[in-house]
Design a binder for these strands. Structure first.
Lengths: 204, 204
DNA sequence: GTCAAACGATAACATTTGTTACCGAATTGA
DNA sequence: TCAATTCGGTAACAAATGTTATCGTTTGAC
């Protein structure tokens, strides 16, 4: 594809990191990586709309995305994704059901996408390799834990504590993402997030 | 073991349901099921304490359990489990890390437990079978989705809506579980749950 | 450069939810 | 059976959070 020729260096830079985790032949590796296509999109591009069925998974070379849903007319941001992450509306992509979420760019983005058919075939093939299927299971498991932890923070922490955690663990997120997205991500109103910031600014 | 002889019918009744999902020889099946041991415990028995490392997974024949953690001195219930469910402090059991949760019976329970070593060996063996590893992946995936959905309900719904969902989808839970456990499970105080019930009782 | 839209801060007020305290019923254990 | 504990309801008040409105700044499109 022309996209592949447009920036072969970028693709290999990104996928290179995963090369040693794929104990497959160079030919297979070529085949797999060749299934990705590069696109560049402006900010606020909707890659997948709530209710549609996801056919693509994305790898983020540059930029950031958010996953959100419509709750009684207001947008609630559910998750953020940054460079080197793979993103899809996971439940829609896996099961072919209408997506519960929209997938939208926050900044201008450079993305690599791969079609579901290719992913399915790839997974089928590599899960014959014991070390690969352990990796896949671990990845799935870690994602489960991530949701569990995230949920836990909602049950355990106050909004202010959640914001402070974000500050400590993901300061880049605060820098790059508009505040009203962060507010809904934390489960509070924009106004209340302002109050919390104000409170923290003055000596706590 | 004597436990196995104590109630062979119960074990087969419970595991029988899974027999057709295990395309293994009768000998293997015998080996696997023989690794379970039956115990009976009173209500309020702590099967695993927060901070300990989980070595056992449980299958519930009769009764119900809750998973909870200590949050600044108060107990927060995170999940409930009923008959025919398998339970463990999943992250501790899988990774050998100190458990984030305690595991406690709510009612007098009849349980079957299996040691982690046996589970590991079992998983190792059966994941050679393609249909089995698909099942395992699906189970893991479904659990991820479950956490996602549960989390979603916290972000999207009001406490009253969450209670109504519980009423509609898991009415038996409301019947069997003490109300103050349910309150913390819903993320609200006991008093507030009382208010909600009162409000619903009078014509909404 | 200009205008409109997006973004964030703040204030005033309303609503939700938590806290504490008290009561009575149900359950449990000796 | 009795006393102690657990459990759930309610009221009064406090704290947290939402809602609406206003304002100034920044950003982006043309």
């Amino acid at each position: 594809m022309s996209a592949k020729h447009a920036a072969p260096v970028s693709l290999s830079t990104i996928l290179e990191k995963f090369r040693d985790k794929f104990p497959v032949s160079p030919e297979k590796w070529q085949e797999y990586t060749g299934q990705f296509q590069r696109i560049q999109v402006p900010a606020k591009t909707i890659l997948l709309k709530e209710g549609e069925i996801s056919r693509k998974a994305y790898l983020i070379e540059k930029g950031c995305l958010r996953v959100w849903f419509d709750n009684k007319g207001e947008e609630v941001t559910f998750q953020f994704f940054f460079e080197n992450c793979t993103v899809s509306s996971i439940e829609s992509f896996k099961k072919g059901t209408p997506s519960l979420f929209s997938l939208e760019t926050i900044e201008p983005c450079t993305l690599w996408w791969i079609d579901k058919n290719d992913v399915d075939r790839l997974l089928e093939e590599v899960s014959e390799i014991p070390s690969m299927r352990n990796q896949i299971m671990n990845t799935l498991f870690e994602r489960t834990l991530h949701y569990m932890q995230h949920f836990l923070s909602f049950v355990r922490d106050t909004p202010q504590e959640r914001y402070e955690n974000l500050l400590n663990h993901h300061p880049y997120l605060i820098q790059r993402v508009p505040q009203h997205y962060i507010a809904s991500y934390l489960g509070i109103s924009r106004v209340h997030l302002s109050r919390i910031k104000n409170k923290l600014a003055r000596g706590k």
